[in-house]
Amino acid sequence: MALGAIPSFFLQLWIGGVLALLSLFLLFQALTVRLQFTPTDLDIYRGKIIIRRFPYQEWQNWRIFWYPVPILFYFKEIKSIHFLPILFDPTTLKECLEQHCPRI
């Protein structure tokens, strides 16, 4: 996406700027956010601080969108839905999900 921002600057300055900012945001997220699969929860960490815990018992479904070129990880809990951009290896993500929270 960052490489796409460069030629976009020549076509439309604002589109290139938006793509560049989005690329920087995703890079920051990829470097700082970590998922940890525990026996009972999916924990999300920023650095060493846990920012969110999702107990598997509250999950109703999950899905990885566009698996050949993974873009988005979706899961639904009893009270809410969540979309996470895929910033990690989709094969490992799928293996961990199938191990800890098989699809319903």
Rank of each mutant, 00 (worst) to 15 (best):
K76T: 04
S23R: 00
G47E: 00
I64D: 01
L24S: 11
W62L: 03
L93R: 07
F10E: 13
L72T: 10
F9H: 13
R103Q: 10
V18M: 11
F9I: 11
L24T: 06
K79Y: 11
D41V: 06
P70W: 04
K94N: 13
R103G: 08
R103Y: 06
L72V: 03
P102G: 02
L27E: 02
L24R: 12
Y67C: 03
M1S: 10
R46D: 08
F28M: 13
E77V: 04
I15T: 12
T91Q: 02
I51L: 04
W66I: 11
T91C: 02
G47Y: 09
V69H: 15
Q57S: 02
Y45L: 01
R34K: 08
W59P: 00
G47A: 13
T38E: 07
M1Q: 11
A30D: 04
Q60V: 06
L72W: 05
D43P: 00
C101K: 03
L35M: 07
P90E: 01
L21S: 15
Y45E: 04
R46G: 14
I50M: 12
F9L: 14
I6Q: 14
P102I: 00
H100T: 01
L97E: 00
W62I: 00
K94W: 11
V69R: 15
G47W: 08
I44S: 07
P7E: 15
K79H: 10
W66H: 10
D41M: 10
P7D: 14
L22C: 15
P102E: 03
P39V: 13
V33C: 09
Q36E: 12
L31C: 13
I81G: 08
Y74A: 09
G17D: 01
L31K: 15
R53N: 12
N61W: 15
I44D: 06
G17S: 02
Q57Y: 07
F54L: 09
P39E: 15
W66Y: 11
L97Q: 02
C96W: 08
Q57A: 07
G47T: 08
L26V: 03
F65G: 05
E98H: 06
T92D: 10
I71W: 08
R34M: 07
L72C: 05
M1C: 10
N61C: 12
P70L: 10
D41T: 12
R34F: 01
K48C: 08
L21K: 09
P55S: 04
F75Q: 00
V18C: 12
G4N: 13
P39I: 14
Y56R: 00
I81R: 12
P39L: 12
P90L: 05
S23I: 01
M1F: 11
L13M: 06
H82C: 12
I64L: 09
K76D: 01
F28T: 15
D89F: 02
P102F: 04
W59F: 08
F37I: 00
P85M: 00
A30G: 05
L87M: 11
C96E: 10
R34T: 04
I71E: 09
G17Q: 02
A5H: 04
F73E: 01
P102Q: 02
T32W: 02
P102H: 01
P68L: 00
I44N: 10
N61I: 11
T38V: 14
F54C: 06
W59H: 00
Y67S: 02
L97F: 04
I71N: 05
G16S: 11
E98R: 07
Q36W: 05
I78Y: 07
